[in-house]
């Protein structure tokens, strides 16, 4: 892993390691909760991809927006959403980020600029360019980052949105997290051409490739690109190579995956890589272990709090639909 020539760089890496560990702990404990039958829907885990969301969001301000996809827990935590409120949302409890109306796929926290995980691929892109247009119209000095996966590069709106961002020179960073799988299909087997960077470059958009498991490398390139975007240089594209250690969803048995493939990738996973870097750069093992145990402790407490939170009252089914023509309580209208 690369290191920046900065005296406080180890502190920054420690901070990012904290965030990555918190995401890892959240995803592992969420899976336990799922297995225990506590989660009403399914969960898409971000395990193995933590470095990307963490390092990109480490370069964003609270006033910047992010838009996420179905695998959004990590993006939300990295942008500053409260893991306890998120866990309550997964369990469909009062106090959840969406009050129990959305679940895992619709985690959002507008107070920290997290404009939502999403169940439909590529919609974050089209909404993201619109959010960027709103920032321009409101003359806000903020930017938008949109996270998409490799599978999304085969949807039409991906191209519409990239073209759109270029013609209006919008302040937006597209982050393509290439975890090699589109649901249970190896993306390469259904994708023509040299890949996402070339596709972005076809629009004249500056596009870069990075090892998405290397938090320092992602931090460095994301920092550079975000600064350019802030300074009015228009949209940029970042392709981060990674690997989805878990299945598409938590109950996915991964029958499509060759034997030994996951294990081979474990030596490259981002937390391990980051730990190696920290040890080599003089950070004590104990400090690293403490971060980890604190993160797991925090998420275990979040799960306990979620289990103890009441279920939302069923009458809330009828609220927040719309102002005009809102449904009558319990009625069909």
């Amino acid at each position: 892993m690369k290191a920046k020539n900065s005296t406080n760089y180890p502190d920054r890496i420690l901070e990012m390691y904290k965030t990555m560990t918190l995401i890892r702990a959240f995803e592992e404990i969420a899976e336990e909760a799922f297995d225990a039958g506590l989660v009403n829907g399914s969960i898409h885990q971000y395990i193995g991809e933590e470095a990307i969301g963490t390092a990109v969001c480490a370069n964003l301000k609270r006033s910047d927006y992010i838009l996420s996809n179905h695998r959004g827990h990590g993006h939300a935590i990295a942008k500053g959403a409260d893991p306890e409120a998120m866990m309550k949302e997964l369990l469909g409890r009062e106090g959840g980020t969406s009050g129990g109306k959305g679940g895992s796929m619709h985690i959002a926290d507008f107070s920290v600029g997290m404009l939502g995980a999403n169940g439909v691929l590529a919609d974050g892109l089209t909404m993201g360019v619109g959010a960027a247009q709103a920032l321009v119209l409101r003359e806000e000095n903020a930017i938008v980052a949109v996270f998409v996966g490799d599978g999304t590069t085969n949807r039409g709106p991906f191209y519409e949105a990239l073209n759109w961002a270029m013609i209006y020179k919008l302040p937006i960073l597209f982050v393509c997290e290439n975890n090699t799988y589109a649901s249970s299909t190896a993306t390469q087997t259904v994708t023509a051409g040299p890949g996402p960077v070339a596709r972005a470059e076809a629009f004249g958009m500056p596009a870069f490739d990075v090892d998405g498991n290397d938090v320092c490398a992602v931090d460095e390139i994301a920092g550079t690109l975000i600064e350019k975007i802030r300074n009015g240089h228009g949209p940029h594209f970042l392709h981060a190579r990674t690997y989805r250690i878990k299945g598409h969803i938590s109950r996915d048995k991964m029958l499509y995956r060759p034997e030994g493939e996951t294990e081979a990738h474990l030596v490259n996973e981002p937390l391990l890589k980051c730990k190696d870097w920290m040890i080599k750069n003089g950070i004590k093992q104990k400090e690293i272990d403490d971060i980890s145990s604190m993160a797991y402790e925090q998420i275990k407490e979040a799960l306990e709090a979620a289990k103890n939170a009441p279920f939302p009252d069923k009458t809330l089914t009828y609220t927040d639909v719309q102002d005009l023509g809102n449904p009558y309580l319990g009625g069909s209208s």
Binding site: M127, Q133, W164
Partner: peptide, 22 residues
Amino acid sequence: VNTPISENTIMGAAVGAAVAGT
């Protein structure tokens, strides 16, 4: 805003811009 023939994005951008305060 004069847009390209990109219905997904005309609608999606409107949604994104609406939630972002316009």
